[in-house]
Amino acid sequence: MNFLEEIVNNPGLTEALPTEFGATLQMISISGFFTVLIGLPLGVFLIASAPGGLRPMPVTHRILSDVVVNITRSVPFAILMVSLIPLARLITGTSIGPIAASVSLSIGSIPFFARIVETSLRDVAAGKIDAALVMGSTRMQVIRKVLLPEALPGLIAGFTSTLVALVGYSAMAGIIGGGGLGRLAYNYGLQRFDTTVMVVIIVIIVAIVQLIQLAGDRAMARVDHRNAATAGAGRRRRRAPAVEVSA
């Protein structure tokens, strides 16, 4: 049996793969959605409440930044997942399956993304914030009209990295009950020594990551106007025609 026949006849691929592929996409999209929904405001809050920020709140900032974010980030993901199973059951009513796994995936990646948001927003020049304040902006207007749009390329790049990390985490989540490609690879590839399934899954996961990265890079290029060469719409500076240098 050659490799191609093996692929079309392997029940692990023909029957289990479509379901588990769907489960993986489900986990990544649900947790990706909640990561932005909670991580983005959290990152904005971390910047705004920092000393010297738009609305300094030293104590709250310290608790959120040092305690919540750092502790969540320092617990290894596999351990965090297991310890969050009761919480997942409380929220979703079950402790297995992609939806339950999305709870711990979200909680694992929210602090990660919030830190990325914080770093991107911190890179926005203080002068731009001053300019917006001097023209009479409210703090909320500074965030909406200056901080977020100016940091958008960095935020998109950060979200891309977060999604890529989620692909990895979701495979891990699969092994401890989440389902998806991770479980398939573990059940067939590792426990049944089915190399074909293993190889196909690795190829699919690599392809997912490549697609995410590609889409992220494209989206970032569209919104990034910081360099004249890549500023896109508007008036492009013409390059001077190349002049041949003759000896």
Binding site: G127, D130, A131, L133, V134, M135, G136, S137, P149
Partner: peptide
Amino acid sequence: VRSARRRIGMVFQHANLLDSRT
């Protein structure tokens, strides 16, 4: 303070324009 500030136009050393806007 915000409405008081609108009476002042300010020009900065490095213009401080938003790169994301035309």
